[in-house]
Design a protein around this nucleic acid. Sequence first.
DNA 1: CAGGATCCGTCTCGATACTG
DNA 2: CAGTATCGAGACGGATCCTG
Lengths: 122, 122
Amino acid sequence: MTTTPVADPYSRLCPSRQLLDRIGDKWTVLVMGVLTPGPRRYGDLARAIEGVSQKMLTQTLRHLERDGLVTRTVHATVPVRVDYELTDLGRSLTGPLAVLEAWARDHLGDIETARASYDARG
Amino acid sequence: MTTTPVADPYSRLCPSRQLLDRIGDKWTVLVMGVLTPGPRRYGDLARAIEGVSQKMLTQTLRHLERDGLVTRTVHATVPVRVDYELTDLGRSLTGPLAVLEAWARDHLGDIETARASYDARG
DNA sequence: CAGGATCCGTCTCGATACTG
DNA sequence: CAGTATCGAGACGGATCCTG
């Protein structure tokens, strides 16, 4: 390692930022939440996550699969059946997500309150 | 509590999702990262976070202030001086963020690898 | 059943120019 | 120094139609 340019001190170096780029979209954490208890079929996911379109559900699952967080298994039955399941890597992420969720449960109300009083004043 | 409609089971109920809506944008975690050690001036933030525009830095700080995560203190000197500092609420969030960062440090490489092999095959 | 393809609105973000 | 105002590009997400 003769030349290891640091480049962008923050945008490159901050791992949280890179991670949030991957899980910060609208549906990823919801999908992972449904998959946490165990494998689910495509249709189950679609029904469990109310409001998601097929496009976004599929796109989210593809991204999760691409990043090695979820496996996609096609059963050659009639009709076709596709199961999605968290990988070990995916499961290792549920812990940190639970930490976030716990904080949110405890403090989202505070944010709501702060925002309300901020908006009330100006 | 006679009527407590659950409404959207997931999009409303998932606190992680709501939290990510607030910290999942491009600059928030970076700003909080710089503010974690202690108060910083506007210009310090701008210089520390390379690549951020004044517009986005200001907008991010306003949002953080609005949500009660950061305080903004104007010193009536010449020239003007403005300090930003994490509130107790803001500091309470640095723990969960550190957990995320730790996971990212340990596993972002795995994601990178998975993605590379996924792209290589198709 | 489990998607793929397409169109289109919205919202985020960056660049630029100007101000107390 | 610490912002504000405006404009335009591009990403993100939703609705719809079609397929093996």
